[in-house]
Simulated scan of single mutants.
Amino acid sequence: MKLIADILMIAGTFSVAVYCIVLAKRLSRFTDLEKGVGGAIAVLSAQVDDMTKMLTKAQKTAAGSAANLENLTSRAEDAAKRLELLMASMHDLPPPPKREAPQAPVASAETNPKSENSSPETLFLSRRSQVEAAE
């Protein structure tokens, strides 16, 4: 009986030794920095550092853009106020005098010898006077 117990004890010890060797190999592959979880953790740690740097840059850029946008918005509001004042002041002006519609010249160059020396107002058929055009 003792012999059978010793044989079973040796077989159990041998199987536990084999199991420990297999676990040790698996654990060494698991913590390997190139292929295992250790490598994955190292890669993720580097990516987290890169993402933190990029997030800091994005926050600085967003803060600068927000300040610029706020400045532009205030300038636009000021311009809108000025335009509103100008539009309000236009209502106070008297209505413009009514003019007759200008007639297009029908005469040709042969019948009108003065056509070469005509004023720019009649040449371009402008509706404004020369003073208004100069302003």
Rank of each mutant, 00 (worst) to 15 (best):
M1L: 11
K2Q: 12
K2H: 08
L3T: 07
A5C: 01
A5Y: 02
A5N: 04
D6K: 05
L8K: 09
M9V: 13
M9F: 15
A11V: 11
G12P: 05
T13V: 12
T13Y: 10
V16T: 11
V16C: 09
A17P: 02
A17Y: 06
V18R: 02
V18K: 03
Y19M: 12
Y19E: 13
Y19R: 10
Y19K: 10
I21G: 10
L23V: 11
L23K: 12
A24S: 14
A24H: 12
R26S: 15
L27K: 13
L27I: 14
L27M: 14
L27Y: 14
S28A: 14
S28F: 14
R29Q: 14
F30L: 07
D32K: 00
D32I: 01
D32E: 02
E34Q: 06
E34P: 02
K35D: 08
K35T: 09
G36W: 00
V37M: 06
G38H: 00
A40V: 12
I41M: 03
I41C: 03
I41E: 03
I41D: 04
A42S: 06
L44T: 05
S45I: 01
A46Y: 02
V48L: 09
D49Y: 06
D50Q: 13
D50W: 11
T52V: 12
K53C: 05
K53V: 12
M54R: 15
M54D: 15
M54F: 10
M54N: 13
T56P: 00
T56A: 10
K57G: 10
Q59V: 09
A62H: 08
A62W: 07
G64H: 07
G64R: 08
A67D: 09
A67M: 07
A67G: 05
N68V: 08
N68T: 13
E70N: 07
N71I: 08
N71V: 08
L72K: 07
S74T: 09
R75N: 09
R75A: 08
A76Y: 04
A76V: 03
A76Q: 06
D78M: 08
A80F: 04
K81Q: 11
R82A: 14
R82W: 10
L83E: 11
L86H: 04
L86N: 06
M87C: 04
M87W: 05
A88L: 02
S89R: 04
S89Y: 03
M90T: 01
H91A: 14
L93R: 00
L93I: 00
P94D: 01
P94S: 01
P95V: 02
P95E: 08
P95M: 04
P96G: 01
P96W: 00
P96K: 01
P97R: 00
P97A: 01
K98G: 05
R99E: 12
E100K: 08
P102E: 00
Q103M: 08
A104N: 12
P105D: 00
A107N: 04
A107Q: 07
A107P: 02
A107R: 07
S108G: 08
E110D: 08
N112Q: 05
P113T: 03
S115Y: 09
E116F: 09
N117R: 10
S118N: 15
S118K: 13
S119K: 06
S119P: 03
P120H: 03
T122Q: 10
L123W: 11
L123N: 11
S126F: 03
S126R: 04
R127W: 12
R127D: 14
S129V: 01
S129C: 03
Q130R: 14
E132T: 03
A133Y: 05
A134H: 03
A134P: 00
A134L: 03
E135P: 00
